[in-house]
Nucleic acid binder design. Structure first.
Lengths: 195, 195
DNA sequence: CTGCTGACAGATATTGAAATCTGTCAGCAG
DNA sequence: CTGCTGACAGATTTCAATATCTGTCAGCAG
């Protein structure tokens, strides 16, 4: 295994594994190097700081999440249905990840708190996907004439559903009424878009 | 000062002062007793545990916040304007408190995290105020015929504006675009209500 | 009798010395 | 020449001894 060249990708893989095993507080660069069978100096050859390494891991993770959602944004069908499906998929994915492995989810919550730049870009990507749906809705006459540009509207939809995708609200996602609350918010937003 | 009878109110006052001075991590029951010039055993005569004492402080603080908003819920005028005014007042009050004394705000964020029951009741009160506005809107024909009961709709409005009143998002409130984001969400919600 | 005190046991927090980690770099191996 | 190593300085974390706090209660003062 350690006969292969030491690439950024191999380091990121090892870093994810170390984070999964030890958590964000205990995971060290030395651990990552040990997992790869190299000295920690070699890791610093590919990532200037520990923060940069963790940021890269976060970026990869968020990119995967964005890719999972793309089909819902670009698929066929009426914009309202795609919007509902996209928001539901986002909510479901977050809940699934939080529920399946709470410790790993908590780990990524810590990483997310560390790299605001990467998170802001991630949010921009998601809002971009939403904006494509909103634009289609306008074009097909399904949504009322735009009162602002699609990105602003998309951002409003994203903000309004914050409670259902922001990891800060993870504790709320296991409450019994949460699905009803989600449906009520989405219904209200759709009425606003169609108005 | 210490010749007066030791009442729950005096203890709460002293506890707020101690919390303000030392913060939530360092404030002890012994500190509160010292501020009152009594032994800490006397404090336990009025509050069974330290948690109960802190919860009572939180409750008082949240009650004050609810009272500040009541005029906007019960005032005259069109429901849409009252709704906007109420939401703006809530957002403005939160931002003002967070900005004026970040440490005290952080203190109350910690307390809020400790007493979920009290917070749930607080949210119910706020949603109740919103529901009164929504009901008026329906009655006056300003809002479309109700699709669910007013409380559900009010809760959806509250949830959708979460980013602008939940202390978890305090860091966002100083971003330059936050007012535009708030206006966009409120506008979208109002269109949904009128639809 | 009523309300407060202060000592106490167990739980929690603080502290500072020792261990570990981060980030650098001179030098070695292939 | 290229990529890796391992020793190093300063920063951060750990750990266990020490101190403080929480919650109780027998007893005292008015």
């Amino acid at each position: 295994m350690s006969t292969d060249a030491l690439t950024p990708d191999r380091i990121l893989e090892a870093t994810e594994e170390v984070l999964r095993r030890y958590g964000p507080a205990k995971a060290t660069v030395v651990d990552v190097a040990r997992a790869l069978g190299v000295s920690h100096g070699s890791v610093y050859r590919h990532f200037r700081t520990k923060a940069a390494l963790r940021e890269a891991v976060t970026e990869r993770w968020l990119e995967r999440a964005v890719r999972e959602l793309a089909p819902f944004a670009d698929g066929p069908g009426p914009a309202a249905e795609r919007l509902t499906a996209w928001l539901s998929a986002l909510f479901a994915a977050k809940r699934r990840k939080a529920g399946a492995d709470p410790e790993l989810f908590a780990t990524y919550m810590v990483l997310i708190g560390e790299s605001s730049r990467v998170v802001a870009e991630h949010v921009d990507h998601l809002v971009g996907q939403l904006a494509r749906i909103v634009e289609d809705g306008h074009r097909q006459g399904e949504f009322a004439a735009p009162v602002t540009d699609a990105t602003t509207t998309a951002r409003a939809v994203f903000d309004a559903t914050d409670r259902f995708h922001d990891p800060a609200h993870v504790a709320d996602w296991s409450e019994p009424d949460i699905d009803a609350a989600f449906d009520a918010v989405v219904a209200l937003l759709l009425r606003g878009l169609r108005a």
